[in-house]
Design a protein around this nucleic acid. Structure first.
Lengths: 159, 159
DNA sequence: ATTTTGGTTCTCTTTTTTATGAACTAACAA
DNA sequence: TTGTTAGTTCATAAAAAAGAGAACCAAAAT
């Protein structure tokens, strides 16, 4: 398999683990992050099912479930090569900017909850209410300005 | 205790649960989010240890640990009232804008990892490398522009 | 001095998550 | 037909997280 050299440098292993914990802390399960790390670190930027299994030394089922999940989350895709049945899995890096924007939108989703909170609150504690409203206003502002910022970036770089 | 009416409306309960899952999905443990929800929903915007226990019907230890954690995360603080030993716990709403900024910085932290990834990669797969670099550039841009945006907000509102 | 209040800490159970390994399947190969 | 490759699915084990409850402790009240 692929030149027979299945060894990762300790540098690479370390980065894989770090990327692993990064995604773990985002609420994903451990192997997901490690697979992403692996696919980032490999020169080819892709790997087959059993390469992933061997590099990370995890079970087939773990790999299978993780890949299914990553694909359903649009983080990974696969290509095939003519005459081969194996799938070559790789990161959908092009989606990452989008993912990041979604992550930011996710942060802002507290706003919908706060709106409902405010709907249940009376006017009896205006000091507190005012605090919440200020925060909401800030979120609103960011929610409006963020897309503009992204447009600006695209104008500067991709146009 | 506090007028003796320890009942939350079903509306309030529902919001507490929703806020609960919101924070749970951010990687926090369930009661943390529910306590935050409770403190958002109560008219007084504060509650004593045993009010929290009773409203949420959880154990003393759960409340104690959760409050300790929330305080260590700067999400909750307490005040006392003259002649009373009880602590009145409340949200540090004023910190939320800051928390949100930190959450956004957290999203950007992938950049440091990508920097280390790139340091290990050779020039052999430029197509992939380019993708990563583009993404990094985008993050850099956001990291620079975000503080400016916040300044802008402050200029418009708080000055 | 001893009781009560307001919590904290420790141990243990329950629940949830994560991963394993074996059995299974679908497609192709000999 | 029988075997092989490339995975998937299922039952379950192992490990981690969450929470309960009792014992505990320090400050204040009686």
């Amino acid at each position: 398999m692929r030149g027979g050299n299945m060894k990762l440098s300790s540098e690479q292993q370390e980065i894989i683990e770090r990327i692993g914990v990064f995604f773990e802390r985002k609420g994903h399960q451990p192997i997901l992050g490690r697979i992403m790390g692996l696919l980032l670190v490999l020169e080819e930027a892709e790997a087959t099912f059993d390469e992933i299994q061997e590099y990370l030394s995890v079970s087939k089922s773990a790999v299978s479930n993780a890949l299914t999940l990553l694909q359903s989350q649009n983080k990974v895709e696969y290509t095939t090569k003519p005459g081969e049945r194996k799938r070559y899995f790789r990161l959908k890096v092009r989606n990452w900017r989008n993912d990041m924007q979604e992550d930011m939108q996710g942060i802002f989703r507290i706003n919908a909850l706060l709106k409902d909170v405010m709907a249940t609150r009376s006017a009896s504690n205006m000091e507190f209410n005012r605090c919440i409203q200020d925060f909401q206003q800030f979120i609103e502002f960011m929610k409006v300005e963020m897309p503009k910022l992204i447009e600006k970036y695209d104008r500067l770089h991709n146009s």
